[in-house]
Simulated assay, not measured.
Amino acid sequence: MVVSAEFLGMLLLITSAAALGLSIVIDVGRVSAEKAREAMAQRTYEKKRAALAEWRQKTERKRVDLTTLQARLTEFNGRRHKTQSELKALEYSKIELVHEVGDADGDPDVYWAQLAVSAEFAELDRKEIVFSRQIWEYRNVVHILANSTDQAHGSLLMAFGKRNGVVTSPVVPLALAPDPTAENGDS
Rank of each mutant, 00 (worst) to 15 (best):
L12T: 11
I14A: 10
I14P: 01
T15A: 14
A18G: 11
S23K: 05
V28G: 04
V31A: 06
E34V: 15
K35G: 04
A39H: 08
M40T: 15
M40F: 08
M40Y: 06
A41G: 11
E46D: 11
E46L: 08
K47C: 03
R49D: 05
E60L: 03
E60K: 14
E60A: 11
R61N: 09
K62I: 13
V64P: 07
L66C: 06
T67C: 01
T68L: 14
T68Q: 09
T74E: 14
T74I: 09
T74N: 13
N77A: 06
S85W: 08
E86Q: 05
L90N: 14
E91R: 14
E91D: 05
S93T: 13
S93A: 11
V98A: 04
H99N: 10
E100G: 08
E100V: 15
P108I: 13
V110C: 06
V110K: 09
W112K: 12
L115H: 10
A116N: 06
V117W: 02
S118D: 04
A119I: 12
I129T: 13
V130Q: 07
F131W: 11
S132K: 15
I135N: 13
I135W: 01
E137W: 00
R139Q: 15
V141I: 14
D150P: 00
Q151W: 00
A152Q: 02
R163N: 05
R163H: 13
G165Q: 09
G165K: 14
V166K: 08
T168G: 02
P170S: 11
P173K: 07
T181S: 07
T181Q: 09
A182G: 04
E183C: 05
E183A: 10
D186T: 06
D186I: 04
